[in-house]
Design a protein around this nucleic acid. Sequence first.
DNA 1: CGGCAAACCTGCGAGC
DNA 2: TGCTCGCAGGTTTGCC
Length: 273
Amino acid sequence: MPELPEVETVCRGLIKPLKNKPLKEIVFRRKDLRFPLPIALTTLKNPLVEDISRRAKYILMTVKGGKTIIAHLGMSGAFIVYDTPPKTYDKHDHVIFRRKDGVEIAFRDPRRFGFMLLVDTKMVKDHPSLKELGPEPLPKTFTGKALAEKLKKAKRPIKIALLDQRVVAGVGNIYASEALFLAKISPFIMANTLTPQNYDNLAGAIQKVLNKSIKAGGSSLKDHRQVSGELGYFQHQFQVYGKDKKPCPVCKTAIVKKTVSGRSTFFCPQCQK
DNA sequence: CGGCAAACCTGCGAGC
DNA sequence: TGCTCGCAGGTTTGCC
């Protein structure tokens, strides 16, 4: 499911139901997802999530007492709010945050590529999963120059480089194709051969597409839901992703789908050089 | 170190 | 209708 805009949407949606809401308990309905779930979460007395933020595609929940939950949605993860305790849970509701007032927030993940870890809050930045991450793409400091710095030695196709979280944090398979289309750059160009103008255009395109998607609540292909239960609707604004054989929105040439390093890549062979 | 395929797991749509 | 196959938004590992 989730690239940066979807994770950002989920984070924002979790603030109201979860942040600083007194919890009765946190319950696991199985003992592991991608990794074993941190058993310490289930033994906390009066647990409280004091803050919720995002780094790359990771959700960071600060827990009272000095620990932080690092959560990842994998491919199919979502958070679901139950206004009252449900009679039965979805079979893929794996972790339940049970509020004292009866509201429950479930972490649901059919494919179980997601995970939750519990680490000392001071150690979050140094966690192996977060340590190597590249720059966040939304701040003004993410520029063509910043991108060029990361890519000047990258002898691989730009599409592949954009999926490397050490280059830029949070771009995934959909937004890599969309951003390259907006910037009119071929996905197959070696990343270290772009011009300064290319890098500027690409950095701008990444910011534009991610911001527009966040405004739309992310993209719902299969699994993504906002915490409110609403779908995201940015998928209706895709220019090339999933559009193979359809006309390019700019020049009407047929969009091409090609597998690159195992990932579907969509592009306009006319517009993107 | 770089680059790539495979692995992790379930669900869904397409095709027969 | 029902089966099999291929594919899916991510990350890590292991092999060349």
